[in-house]
Nucleic acid binder design. Structure first.
Lengths: 287, 287
DNA sequence: CAGTGGTCTAGACCACGCT
DNA sequence: GCGTGGTCTAGACCACTGT
């Protein structure tokens, strides 16, 4: 599309498009290759500014790609690169056929380190609920659970965390938690098979188990005394994107948990949570 | 568009490229639009497989874009989309003029919750070092520090964390820690001005302060009794990418810390760390 | 159906790193 | 200077969403 005239294609005798990232050198203006902002950067910066300034409030649609092409006089690819940048920053999200919108602020779930204490209390007082429902402040009926149990030998990583020999047979339990149909976290929990074989804990039909893990272990005669959590963050793998419906530009928080009874590890779990839905809260007493 | 033959476009009489995301419909084969893997997906999947399988070891260069174009018979844009996907996953990194390589595994720094206890011990025994040097297991000379002090009124967020009125004058201290010249974390720490005005703590020249925060507060007559850390993860903002040299596809971990002396908050800090360089370690005792 | 984003091709010029 | 990635244009067909 000759912005001025004539065909721009083929061999292109004249190119209105001069140099990517370069201003047309005006007579008398010295341009020693100043890192001129790239086109897609300018578009992204402007859109970011509008979002930050509230001109595009959370949840609102951005101008469509054709509109942005016209407004900034750039090709579609350039517009899309700008949007990709904003997506990678987690500022916007895109829905097929609908458009691109400023990412709405989602309610954050607080995962307090004291939830384990609370669970212990519950177990003792005989109340229902799980740490998950307690965290979410929701009742039984609001959440659903996918579960998948199998026996498997301990991988070297899990064995190390469990402080057992690699190959030791474990009960591997995979869960996906949902509230109101929205996936909130997925987790894989490991228990020593010899510890649970034949007990109700080994039966998936008993999930969700009232009182959660703490209660389950309690039913086996183990009262937990400590929990260790290692926290990391990374971008989700494709599988996690699918299962958890993680939007582009959102990392996941990975918690590797070891549950202790005195010095013995009785459970190991890996918990994966989209980072935009959670805040972890730890209190460290030094007294 | 003519999937089998015939001109599909103006210019190209034959297009070897048929339909994005569609198999050429074979006679007798019903294709109710099976989500055929996109081309760039296939390229990305194959490259991911090679990396995971170790065929492309960490740090090794991937084939160049022209090479991949030839190998997969796709246009450059398609190759670049595949690489962008892998970058977003944090699997590869790209360097201008050099190429794209499998992201090398970087040593992970462990941030134990017991580091505060260790600091307290240090302060009492009069040893040197900071929690930072202790975490890194390095000596004094291996790290450098950028610092910037200023007085500022408490924003509503900080005021809430500090449990003071918004607008209360604070000493705001910004730090960037580096080891061997590589940025490791940036942090902003807040102290009540009235608590530190005129003391050595308010003088940037005294940073880095032997024994770190714990020691500083101790010198002011405050022996900390508890720490609360809120942990979140998100993609870095452009500013953080610059300062911390965060590679593409790597999130940051944000720790919001409140330091307590009994029930009083004596310090608030926000610590930003590239997620590929850190693992947080919390132990929760339930006894 | 119109409009939106998703994917893909083809070709061009650029800046950067290394030999 | 050559090879690598970075940016940009132009045009095409596709699938999904909502009216």
């Amino acid at each position: 599309m000759g912005a001025v005239d004539g065909p721009t294609r083929g061999t292109s005798l004249r190119r209105r498009y001069v140099v990517p990232g370069h201003r047309v050198p005006q007579p008398g203006m010295t341009v020693p290759t100043p890192p001129q902002p790239r086109r897609y950067r300018l578009v992204a910066d402007e859109l970011r500014r509008r979002i930050m300034a509230g001109a595009i409030p959370p949840g609102a649609l951005l101008p469509s790609e054709p509109t942005l092409m016209a407004e900034f006089s750039v090709a579609r690819g350039t517009v899309r690169e700008a949007l990709a940048l904003l997506r990678a920053e987690g500022l916007v999200a895109t829905e097929m056929g609908r458009g691109t919108y400023a990412r709405p602020v989602v309610p954050v779930r607080r995962l307090g380190s004291d939830r384990y204490r609370a669970e212990l209390e519950q177990v003792r007082s005989g109340e229902l609920g799980t740490s998950f429902t307690a965290d979410q402040r929701i009742g039984w009926s609001d959440y659903s659970l996918d579960k998948e149990f199998r026996e498997a030998p301990a991988t070297s990583e899990v064995a190390e965390l469990f402080e057992v020999d690699p190959g030791t047979t474990l009960l591997e339990r995979r869960f996906v938690f949902r509230t109101h149909g929205i996936p909130q976290q997925m987790s894989t929990s490991y228990l020593l098979l010899e510890m649970v074989a034949g007990t109700p804990v080994a039966d998936p039909a008993n999930e969700p188990w009232p009182g959660g893990n703490t209660s389950q272990l309690h039913s086996l005669g183990y009262t937990i005394t400590a929990v260790r959590e290692q926290v990391r963050a990374r971008m989700p793998v494709p599988d996690e994107v699918d299962v958890l419906r993680v939007p582009g530009g959102v990392p996941v928080v990975v918690i590797t948990r070891q549950t202790y009874v005195e010095a013995q590890v009785v459970e190991v779990a890996e918990i994966v949570i989209p980072a935009d839905r959670v805040s972890l809260d730890y209190r460290i007493d030094l007294t």
